[in-house]
Design a binder for these strands. Structure first.
Length: 396
RNA sequence: GCGUCGGUGGUAGAGUGGUCAAUUACACCAGACUGUAAAUUUGGCGCCUUCGGGCUUCGUUGGUUCGAAUCCAACCCGGCGCA
């Protein structure tokens, strides 16, 4: 039994690309799907009604952030996250595993889930998180049972275990949520990656167990397991085989990648997975990466980039990204959403909040629209052509 | 005319004898951003540079001093007060 139903409508002949529909307790969304990220229960700067008009069908929030503020009990009391944030469509929550990374090993390390071009795995700094937690001002310490962390908001001490993460996610009530996972630096050596991956596997089992003990939640909420394995294809394969054999409703591909081996990592991570369940590539969202993901069989994406870039003045165009704050857009007559680039340029220069709002809306529409076009191209059996066409003019 | 306060890099505004090419903010220029510690953030911002340094700057001119954005004098410009 699963709280969602995944219907595959079309499979591409030439690649692993596929188009489908996922039915949830709060309606359906088409796949490939791009989920906008609303970490704290809001897609920054955009009203739910506007999201819908921009083509958004599904949104993703975060367990860690909502646990800290306002707290899962407040949200449960207010009728659940859908009702609280007034988004009545399909909703996903991330488990907080990523925050273990970003507030733990990656804290103050100028590190993201993507490693710089050419940076080799294994070329890691000489210290790892168990050893340096606290010493280097990390906010999270990981052990096999769970993670102890201090709030980045007020410094208060908390602890997450897989069971606790699931309990919180039950209270939030998203249609789809993720198992609690762990991952390490993209440049950590293999033994660290293995250790972290095994921990993720154990936590996946515990997440599933915790979910299966709540029959009410089982009926309404689906749980996705997360595949780790870093940048080693054989670990990706191993992780996918392990997680893929567990009775999850779908799967997330987590962890870190580099631009060059994204395709290879995805191939290894997806091949062992059951074909009839959806796959979500966590946190990935540049146009070229979306194509790469879909080509390898990804059904769902989420990414902060449309809103983060929009908020800071950069918008997507068919020719590539442009920074509207630059002087050259001062009198640019091109328009988006009915507003000229010149006006947006002015709003950003003047630090008016409408600039980030409109630019975020533009980017969300661009990326969600792109994924919708990708879906159509799969239905029309011309995904590869569409990909080539798009990337021939889009400057990365 | 007399008195008084003041003239610093795009702007505001620190600095009041060496650690000053000159704090800081804003502006400007270039960059970053991939399960959001993010309406964030990094670098540059006199000229030249083999990146060691070199050269010219703090109204103007001259002076004191080993050394001046900082002290003195005259002049120019501005605010205010008195005539």
């Amino acid at each position: 039994m699963s709280a969602i139903r995944f219907e595959i409508v079309k499979k591409s002949g030439a690649s692993q690309a596929r188009a489908g529909v996922i039915h949830t307790a709060h309606g359906a969304f088409s796949t490939p799907a791009f989920s906008t990220v609303g970490t704290k229960g809001t897609v920054k700067g955009i009203l739910p009604d506007d999201l819908r008009e921009l083509g958004v069908e599904v949104a993703l929030s975060n367990t860690y952030h909502l646990f800290l503020q306002p707290g899962e009990d407040v949200i449960k009391t207010m009728g659940g996250l859908h009702e609280f944030m007034r988004w009545q469509g399909p909703l996903i929550t991330d488990s907080g595993g990523f925050q273990v990374f970003s507030l733990g090993v990656a804290y103050n390390q100028d590190m993201s889930k993507f490693v710089a071009r050419g940076e080799a795995a294994g070329a890691a700094p000489a210290v790892y998180y168990e050893d340096v937690a606290g010493v280097h001002g990390k906010l999270a310490i990981v052990d096999d049972e769970g993670v102890t962390f201090t709030s980045h908001i007020d410094g208060s001490l908390h602890r997450f275990t897989p069971e606790r993460s699931i309990e919180i996610q039950h209270k939030l009530g998203a249609d789809i949520f993720f198992a609690f996972d762990d991952f390490v630096s993209p440049v950590a050596p293999e033994e660290e990656q293995i250790k972290s991956m095994k921990r993720t596997h154990a936590w996946a089992r515990r997440s599933l167990d915790a979910h299966s003990r709540n029959l009410q939640a089982m009926k309404q909420q689906a749980i996705f397991g997360i595949i780790q394995g870093g940048r080693y294809p054989h670990l990706r394969r191993e992780s996918a085989a392990e997680i893929g054999a567990m009775p999850f409703d779908g799967f997330g591909i987590g962890g870190s990648f580099s631009k060059e081996d994204l395709g290879e990592a995805l191939q290894a991570a997806i091949e062992p997975l059951p074909a009839d369940k959806p796959r979500h590539l966590l946190g990935i969202g540049e146009p070229e990466d979306l194509f790469e993901g879909v080509a390898n069989g990804i059904d769902m994406f989420d990414c902060v980039l449309p809103t983060r870039l929009g908020r800071t003045g950069t918008i997507y165009t068919l020719a590539g990204k442009i920074d509207l704050r630059k002087d050259i857009y001062k009198t640019d007559t091109r328009e988006t959403l009915g507003y000229s680039y010149a006006y947006l340029h002015h709003l950003f220069r003047a630090h008016e909040m409408l600039g980030p709002i409109i630019a975020s809306m533009h980017n969300v529409r661009f990326i969600v629209g792109l994924v919708a076009d990708i879906r159509q191209s799969i239905l029309d059996d011309r995904f590869d052509d569409f990909r080539a066409d798009f990337l021939s003019t889009y400057k990365t």
